[in-house]
């Protein structure tokens, strides 16, 4: 029964969500609105689970003084500080909470995001090698797009941005659409398997 109930619940809600998309029956519409409310409620509880999981993990590592437990302490201190500032000093403009957010979190996270530029450069250096005919095609297309998407391309030759747009809109788009169709069909088949209970590993009760 422990295994069957989640499958039945999954099936009923799966069919319900599918049916309500096509049928405008008031009962289904109302049920649908309730489902939307519940999704939000459940999400908030999931956040609580996350916070608890975070606390337990780091407290455990600190109490056992595991390798580099100082980092766990920093993580917990960060959490405690933000909760304290948020609850007791508010989150309005010019509050300490927002100061920390603007002056610590934003620059730190932007730094992580900016790593992308560095990694793109090193990946391009390593990846774009003219090993055979296909890789030459890839290399030429890549260089045209890299140049064509910035003003520099236009300065070098007016045909470069045009070629870049053509590559993006024709061959690249065709390939992406093909992959998207595959992904879409894969998603549908997986959803159907989940709805009827064929695929149940995600329940942890394979």
């Amino acid at each position: 029964m422990r295994r069957q109930i989640p499958i039945v619940v999954c099936f009923v809600f799966g069919i319900f969500m599918l049916a309500q998309f096509f049928v405008s029956h008031p009962l289904l519409t109302r049920g649908y609105q309730n489902v939307l409310d519940w999704m939000q409620i459940i999400f908030v509880f999931a956040l609580l689970v996350g916070a608890l999981s975070f606390l337990i993990l780091h407290l455990d590592k600190i109490s056992k003084q595991q390798k580099e437990w100082g980092y766990n302490l920093v993580a917990l201190a960060g959490l405690a500080a933000m909760v304290f500032l948020g609850f007791f000093k508010g989150i309005q403009k010019d509050s300490p909470f927002l100061w920390v957010f603007d002056n610590l979190q934003v620059p730190m996270q932007s730094t992580m995001f900016s790593l992308l530029a560095f990694f793109v450069a090193s990946a391009a250096y390593r990846g774009f090698r003219a090993r055979n005919f296909q890789s030459v095609v890839l290399l030429v297309a890549g260089v045209l797009i890299i140049l064509g998407r910035v003003p520099l391309g236009e300065m070098l030759h007016s045909k470069i941005p045009e070629s870049a747009t053509w590559i993006l809109n024709v061959p690249s788009m065709a390939a992406r659409r093909g992959i998207l169709i595959g992904i879409g069909l894969g998603s549908i088949a997986t959803s159907l398997r989940i709805i009827v209970g064929i695929e149940r590993t995600y329940l942890g009760k394979g």
Partner: peptide, 9 residues
């Protein structure tokens, strides 16, 4: 690539 990911299981 694409549906290979969904076919994996």
């Amino acid at each position: 690539i694409g549906e290979e990911f969904f076919a994996a299981s």
